Simulated assay, not measured.
Amino acid sequence: MLGKKLVTAQKRGETRALCLGLGMVACSVMMYFFIGITIMPSYMNSIWTKETTCKLLKADIKDKVQCSFNNGEGDEKNFQYPCLEVLVDLNFSGQEVMLYHTEETQERNPKCSYIPQNLKNDKEVKTLIETAAENFRKHQTFPCYYDPERRQTSVILIRLYPPKGLYFAFLWPSLMLTGGVLIIIMVKVSQYVSVLSAWQYKTNI
C-alpha cells in the first residue's frame, strides 16, 4: 500500500516537473518570437553602427520655434516648444554634422537633436532641454555613432539597441530554454531509471 502511494506521488511529481519544463520552453519560444518582431528589426535597420568621437561645436536652444512632430502614425502635429540643436565635429575631421539623441529622434523631428518624451508640460520640456544643453557644454568630447557607409551624415549619441543590449535581451529566454530542457531531460532520465529498476526487480524474482 505504501509502495503504491510512493509510486503515485512520484508520478505526480514527474508530471508537474514535466509540465514546468514544457512551460519554460514554451515561454522562451514566445520571448524569442517577441524579440524577433520588435527588437531585431530595429537593431538590423539601424545604420549608425560605428563608434567614434565627437567634439561639441554648438549647442543652441531655439526658443519659440514651431517644430513639426511625427507621432509615428503618419500624422504631423505642430508644437511650440524649445528646440535643441547640437552640432559636432566628427572624429576631429573638421566636418560639422548634426547630432541626434537616438535613432528615433531624427524620425520624430529632424530639426531637433533632443526631444523629451512628454511635450504637454511646457516648463518641464524647457527644463529638460536646458539640462541637456548644459550637459553637452560640460562634456565637450564624447563618444557617438555614425554610419560607416555614409548614407547618413548625421550622428547619434545613444543606440537604442546596441549589441550588448541585444545580448541581454536574448540571455533570459536562453536561460529559461536551457532550464526547461534540463528539467525535461531529468524527468525522462528518472522515468527511464524507474522502468529499468522495475525490470531488473522482476528479472531477479
Rank of each mutant, 00 (worst) to 15 (best):
M1I: 10
G3V: 00
L6T: 14
A9P: 12
A9E: 14
Q10N: 07
K11G: 04
R12A: 02
G13K: 11
E14F: 05
A17Q: 05
C19T: 12
G21L: 08
L22E: 01
G23S: 09
A26Y: 06
A26R: 04
M30Q: 05
Y32T: 04
F33E: 14
I35R: 00
I37W: 09
I37S: 12
I39M: 13
I39S: 13
I39E: 14
I39R: 09
Y43C: 03
M44I: 05
S46P: 02
T49I: 03
T49K: 09
T49F: 02
E51T: 12
L57R: 09
L57P: 13
K58F: 06
K62V: 03
D63G: 13
D63M: 15
Q66S: 08
Q66W: 03
Q66A: 04
C67R: 12
N71R: 13
E76Q: 03
K77R: 13
Q80E: 11
P82F: 01
C83E: 09
L84D: 10
E85H: 02
V88S: 06
V88K: 04
L90F: 02
L90V: 03
L90E: 05
F92T: 04
F92G: 00
Q95M: 02
M98E: 08
M98D: 14
L99K: 07
T102R: 04
Q106D: 15
Q106K: 15
Q106N: 13
E107R: 07
R108C: 10
C112M: 01
Y114P: 10
P116L: 01
Q117H: 07
Q117G: 13
L119D: 14
V125C: 05
L128M: 07
E130H: 04
A132C: 06
A133Y: 12
R137D: 07
K138M: 00
Q140G: 13
T141H: 02
F142N: 06
P143C: 14
C144S: 07
C144A: 08
C144D: 10
Y146S: 01
P148T: 07
E149Y: 03
R150D: 10
S154D: 13
S154A: 12
V155W: 05
L157D: 05
I158H: 09
R159S: 07
R159G: 07
Y161C: 01
P162T: 15
K164P: 00
K164S: 06
Y167V: 00
F168D: 11
F168R: 06
F168Q: 10
A169V: 02
L171Q: 01
P173N: 06
L175G: 04
L177K: 14
T178D: 12
T178M: 15
V181Q: 02
I184S: 09
I185D: 13
I185V: 11
I185Q: 11
M186F: 12
K188A: 02
K188Y: 03
K188G: 00
V189T: 07
V189D: 06
S190R: 00
V193W: 10
S194Q: 12
V195I: 12
L196D: 15
S197M: 09
S197W: 06
A198P: 15
Q200S: 06
Q200T: 08
N204H: 01
